[in-house]
Amino acid sequence: MQWVLTLFVIGAAFATVRPLGLEGRGLAVAALLVVNSLALAARHLPEAGVPPRADLVWMTLGIVAAAALIGVSRSGSSYLFAYFLVGHAGFRLPVGRAVTLAVLCSLLCGGVLYFRIGPGHHLLPWALGLTTGLPVVVGIVNRSRRRAVTAAIEAAESAERAARAEARTAVLTERGRIARDVHDVLAHSLAGINMQLELADALLDTGDLEKVRAANQKAHSMVKESLKQAQWTVHALREDSLPLVESLTALIDSSGHRDALTVTGTVREVPSRATQNLLRIAQESLTNAARHAPGGEVRVELAFAAGSTTLKVRNSPATRAVRTGVGSGMGLIGMRERAALLGGTITAGPVTEGPDEGGWQVEAVIPG
């Protein structure tokens, strides 16, 4: 559309402005028409490709040429160049420079007609020359509108990028949570079952069928426990709510440490997310105790305070030989990640005093 208007103004000027020829005044008119046409066509150059100072120079020259064309020509639409150039100055230049050029154009064009310079002064009133600066207002308004639209588009794009980044972060967070749940259910259960099956395989060579049967039964019980843990994992992924105290009691009992839980403070409902993570931390601690301190006594304490919930899992030293095995190395890391997701902390280390000296303790403090 802009090019159509430009070509229309140029075509109308060459069709109507007179005299037009190759000598005398006609040659001057032709030269000024060419200069005005080039100045008007230059408004289609990309802003990024033209320095601001060059913009100011060619628009100033174009306005001077437009005023000169009004003075030299005898008739025609030569004044259209001035209107369009001033309007584009308001769109392309800063407000101060654009207004200055508009005032200059009004004074030049109005002066040409007022002082009756040139043969065509009688056809146009001098006040018309003063109005050639008015299109600068339209240009400034269009410039402001374009900036507003550009700012809105950039804001929308920025919001879209932020939304995509947030979605990627949420996906990575959820992947981490699922990875921890898979580790808790599969790694722990399969490691324990594997230990019992290896023990049964070793006992076959001794001919002690009672011990083989006991190891086999232990493996079966661990399979059942794994099914329970799988159900808990499904609940966690669905964000179903589990009662903390009852679920923790069942978890401890299934690990073979009955009546090992002590609850202090006023029991209250804990958010589902906190419940799931505390249960996983307890499960990890109990599994590590069974792996690294077989036969040792385990004590679990759940304390409800005004602003936090604390879980302690402490085990005494091993009373049976520790079977060497390869762990995943992700247990303590997973516990720390779970606590961090809830804004809490994990401390883990050896017990240095008391009846459980030489054992290990894990303490998780979760706010709220």
Rank of each mutant, 00 (worst) to 15 (best):
24 G>N: 10
40 L>V: 14
45 L>S: 09
132 T>Y: 04
60 T>Y: 05
116 R>W: 06
55 D>M: 11
131 T>S: 08
47 E>Q: 10
62 G>L: 06
99 V>H: 02
39 A>E: 01
32 L>K: 03
114 Y>E: 07
123 L>I: 12
49 G>I: 10
127 A>T: 13
36 N>F: 04
18 R>K: 14
86 V>D: 00
65 A>L: 05
16 T>R: 13
108 L>W: 02
94 P>G: 11
13 A>T: 11
103 V>C: 10
89 A>E: 02
123 L>Q: 12
12 A>T: 14
76 G>R: 04
54 A>N: 01
54 A>R: 14
120 G>V: 13
19 P>W: 05
12 A>I: 12
129 G>L: 12
49 G>E: 13
96 G>P: 03
85 L>V: 08
134 L>P: 00
69 L>N: 05
45 L>D: 06
77 S>A: 13
115 F>N: 00
124 L>I: 14
117 I>L: 10
32 L>G: 05
61 L>Q: 01
114 Y>Q: 12
65 A>S: 14
95 V>D: 12
16 T>V: 11
129 G>R: 10
71 G>D: 11
23 E>N: 10
121 H>F: 15
130 L>C: 07
38 L>W: 03
62 G>S: 08
98 A>F: 03
101 L>Q: 13
82 A>K: 00
77 S>Q: 08
59 M>F: 15
51 P>S: 14
54 A>Y: 08
78 S>L: 02
53 R>S: 13
17 V>W: 03
87 G>E: 07
53 R>A: 14
56 L>K: 07
16 T>F: 11
130 L>E: 07
22 L>W: 15
85 L>Y: 08
108 L>H: 02
74 R>N: 14
77 S>P: 07
125 P>H: 09
112 V>D: 04
123 L>G: 02
100 T>P: 01
112 V>W: 00
35 V>K: 04
109 C>R: 01
108 L>N: 02
30 A>L: 15
60 T>Q: 06
106 S>K: 04
104 L>E: 02
45 L>I: 05
82 A>N: 01
121 H>K: 01
73 S>K: 04
90 G>K: 04
81 F>N: 00
127 A>I: 12
25 R>D: 10
93 L>M: 09
119 P>H: 00
49 G>C: 09
16 T>A: 09
80 L>P: 02
15 A>F: 13
66 A>T: 01
81 F>Y: 15
